[in-house]
């Protein structure tokens, strides 16, 4: 899965909640960083990505990630 999908869906979430839309790079920290999102928004992002890709990188348990790039990499890894 390309990082572009993470960026697209994340931007959509920021737009939906009328939060400032900032530039998102692979190094952008998701929580407690420059983005005005909380854990519920992050869960929404993960669910949206799972639905869009049909992949479930957290099926066997939660895996820690901090940045948008790390999240994208987990989906890429799940795709095999």
């Amino acid at each position: 899965m390309s990082f572009d999908l993470v960026r697209t869906e994340l931007t959509q979430i920021l737009t939906d909640k009328s939060a400032p839309v900032v530039e998102i790079t692979p190094d952008t920290v998701l929580l407690n960083g420059p983005l005005d999102i909380d854990s519920l928004d992050l869960a929404t992002l993960v669910v949206t990505l799972e639905e869009a890709t049909g992949l479930q990188p957290f099926r066997e348990g939660f895996v820690l990630f901090h940045t948008a790039g790390e999240l994208g990499a987990l989906f890429t890894k799940a795709a095999g």
Binding site: D16, K17, L40, T48, E51
Partner: peptide, 8 residues
């Protein structure tokens, strides 16, 4: 909820 939360 997985579908409900996406619609906000």
């Amino acid at each position: 909820l997985r579908r409900m939360m996406r619609t906000r």
